[in-house]
């Protein structure tokens, strides 16, 4: 118990240190990504659903397994979907720039 408490406090400091430097632009992906990580409860759910014999604990564990898996799989996928959008900057605007610039030259010439 005491060991666990020590780990908890140290992890809290570490988390604060790392995460306070995340820029505003990434706050939503940070949130959904962090939420996927909180789905680590899936590990507990696996143990509960997979190892026990009593019906109550098995079915409670099964329910936990389903919701935790939604959290993990959905959370990581949707975070990736968002981050992909942040990554593809300046993919297409060049086209618009080019055509518009051409129009502008025409305009000044006429």
């Amino acid at each position: 118990m005491l060991d666990n408490l020590i780990i908890f406090v140290l992890a809290a400091f570490l988390g604060t240190e790392i995460l306070s430097r995340v820029p505003q632009t990434l706050h939503t992906p940070l949130m959904s990504g962090a939420n996927a990580i909180s789905g680590i409860t899936v590990v507990g759910a696996l143990v509960a659903a997979g190892m026990t014999q009593g019906p109550w604990s098995t079915w409670l564990g099964f329910g936990a397994l389903v919701v935790a898996t939604i959290n993990v799989v959905g959370g990581f996928l949707v975070t990736d979907r968002m981050l992909k959008m942040f990554g593809r900057k300046q993919a297409s605007p060049s086209q618009v720039d080019a055509s518009a610039a051409a129009q502008r030259t025409d305009g000044t010439a006429g």
Partner: peptide, 10 residues
């Protein structure tokens, strides 16, 4: 504990 706490901090 570690991962939960990281998320809690975030």
């Amino acid at each position: 504990i570690v991962s939960g706490t990281l998320v809690g901090a975030a």
